[in-house]
């Protein structure tokens, strides 16, 4: 509340943003120098997972709808960004000359195109949510994810089932770095947080709590549900674009139902409806997936058991709908003083 009603102080924000960018840049150098490639990769995946989880949580946690086909949005973003990047790079280089600047511009334009197309898919999938509740909607999202995968499997200009590797024999350019992943993590977390703690966010929660009452309060439930889907799909699209530029190519199997399940695990572990919980869940999944790499065939058995046990024992997840924030921590430490 007190934060929301504060008048913005633009100069402070500017300084703060510059500081964050500088810190990111320094951290980027530190990560590149300090960790072997294997660890760097885990860190990047953790960041991408945080984006996926925080975005998905907007639908599944905050709005109380249920998407279990989120890998579909990620796939749209990944393919769109990869394709755009490949086609755009020569033009941008011609304009700016080869180098970090051109790469950065190409990369972020490609990511934005990916986000845009994924958002379009989000509108498409969000529309049935006007008429469907809960589990029905879940099935539609699942069906959507499958249809997307089948389409990419058959799209010749995107390499069909072999996958898309761009036009050069070296494969897709690996633009994705610590700096850009966490730049987007910060942007997306801030955007989602600001949406959640606003009149829009309250309305989304109202839809989750009681849709009939929400309608009786003149809340435009239809528009808001589509908005949640659109925004969430866009974030998955960014994550897809970041993912695509981590390796030489992307395949339709990278976006199977398993990937959607990974995302569900992320938000369930952390607590549906909590941004910080989702972020924690994203890191958790990245780390456990790596730890279980040798146990590949047991991984999903363990995941499945984890899901069931969480549902039976603590269905609200680690944090429930609570958030970890400075204000909450301060409250916690102040509490003992109260009579």
């Amino acid at each position: 509340m007190d934060i929301a009603t504060q008048k913005p102080r633009w100069l402070l924000r500017l300084v703060l943003s510059a500081g964050v960018l500088a810190a990111l840049y320094a951290a980027n150098l530190g990560v590149q120098a300090g960790f072997i490639e294997y660890v760097q990769r885990i860190i990047l995946i953790a960041g991408i997972n945080v984006i996926l989880a925080v975005g998905l949580n907007l639908i599944n946690g905050t709005t109380g709808q249920f998407s279990i086909g989120h890998a579909g949005f990620m796939a749209v973003g990944a393919y769109a960004a990869a394709f755009t990047g490949v086609k755009l790079a020569p033009h941008v280089t011609a304009l700016l000359g080869a180098g970090t600047l051109a790469d950065g511009v190409t990369f972020n334009l490609a990511l934005l195109v990916g986000a845009l197309l994924a958002a379009g898919a989000g509108v498409l999938v969000g529309l049935p949510s006007l008429r469907l509740k809960g589990d029905y909607l879940a099935i539609v999202t699942l069906g959507f994810g499958e249809i997307i995968r089948i389409l990419f499997n058959n799209a010749q200009f995107l390499g069909a089932a072999t996958g898309y590797f761009g036009d050069s024999p070296a494969g897709l350019p690996t633009y994705t770095s610590f700096f850009w992943v966490f730049f987007w993590v910060i942007v997306i977390v801030v955007v989602v947080r600001n949406v959640t703690f606003s009149q829009t966010g309250r309305s989304l929660i109202a839809i989750r709590e009681d849709e009939i009452a929400a309608e009786a309060m003149a809340i435009p439930t239809t528009r808001l549900k589509v908005l949640a889907f659109t925004l969430s799909a866009a974030t998955a699209g960014i994550a897809g674009g970041l993912f695509a530029h981590m390796q030489s190519g992307i395949r339709p199997e990278d976006f199977k139902f398993d990937k959607s399940i990974d995302m569900i695990v992320m938000i369930i572990v952390g607590g549906l409806g909590s941004i910080s919980g989702a972020a924690l869940g994203g890191v958790f999944v990245a780390v456990t997936l790596e730890l279980m790499r040798d146990l590949q065939q047991y991984r999903l058995v363990l995941y499945a058991l984890l899901l069931i046990v969480i549902m039976l024992v603590r269905p609200e997840g680690l944090l429930g709908t609570r958030e970890i924030s400075l204000a909450a921590l301060r409250r916690r430490f102040r509490q003992p003083e109260r009579p």
Binding site: A4, T5, V195
Partner: peptide
């Protein structure tokens, strides 16, 4: 508060950038 859209004219973009219109509405 959630029932008060009539008092809340600024949209979701204002909320994202947290501008003055948003703060006033809240």
């Amino acid at each position: 508060m959630v029932a008060g859209h009539k008092l809340h004219r600024s949209g979701v973009l204002s909320a994202i950038v947290r501008n003055t219109a948003h703060a006033n509405d809240e």
